[in-house]
Design a protein around this nucleic acid. Sequence first.
DNA 1: CTTATTTGACCTTT
DNA 2: AAAGGTCAAATAAG
Length: 330
Amino acid sequence: MQLSRGAVGGGHGCGPPDGTQLRCRERELVAQLHELLFPSTAPSPAGGGASWSSSSSADLSVEHCGSPVKAPALCGRRRGRGSKRVREGGPQEEQKQCRGSSAATKAARGRRKKEETTTTTIVTTVPDFDGYQWKKYGQKKIEAAQYPRSYYRCTNSADQACPAKRTVQRNDDSEGDSGSPKYTVVYISEHSCKLTEAAAAPVILETAVRTKTPAAPDTAAVFSTNSSAYSTGTQSPASSDGTWSGGTVSEANPMLRERNDCSSLFDVDGDCWKWDPSPTAPVAALLQDMDFAGPIMSPVHVAAADGSWINDLFLNESPFVLNSCQLFGY
DNA sequence: CTTATTTGACCTTT
DNA sequence: AAAGGTCAAATAAG
């Protein structure tokens, strides 16, 4: 995906290239992100919801790939699994029965026959930058990858048969990449589940802040906002081994938590993002000052200008890179 | 006690 | 056979 500066500049009917246009374009870009991350909640492009343009949607790395679709795997309890499991008697017999029970069961295990599903790949430093709750069901060391891949499915997969899944894998440490670790997040299938009202709110859920404090010099903290859309149990700060599991909030630093709660700064109103309430003076000033020589800035970034934190949204790499948060000096 | 995560075995595809 | 996706008991955490 490439969102060139030229693409940013016009062609979307947002008026002359001034602050208003930039703001409009920003909303558009965030709407794109929203559409990408909240496909079941955002209006379809044809529906006249978020202000997508055809060229813009083509820029996003939304791929239609064949991928397995989960089918119920019901063979009852079979054998001990996981750590410290105790093998039950006759696992082979039981397995044979299970295996040969039906074609459906066969297809229910392992890699299934490919069916048309939508997969969306993003690279982000904040893998949980979405409004859904996920349950981890597996982790796998991937050949030729430095870090394991974690597998998640929607927590509504059971009660609402939501097919949405995602995998999160930390990218290999690249040379000279001293920034926050990036994670490749692959969203598989779209949510069919119904979100709660709170969960649907497209607020910034989590970011990481690099702090320099006497107690913890130059250490990164990952924390979430207090959005109710965000559960703690299934969310995932990065752990040292490169996986993404568990959830913690920076309780050790209440100020960070407070400052991070920028959810009230913006909201989505129909087809556009809006400031809620009206943009503060620093925000308005920043909007005026912004140009697109650097990364395209999202409202998240603007929120940072309000003295809270910084969250850059890069939409000029393929797949697009959601790069959050480098805030120093707390 | 309940819920979420971990993790090795199992299964299918390539 | 290798690789990767899934299962589910064991375990940890709240």
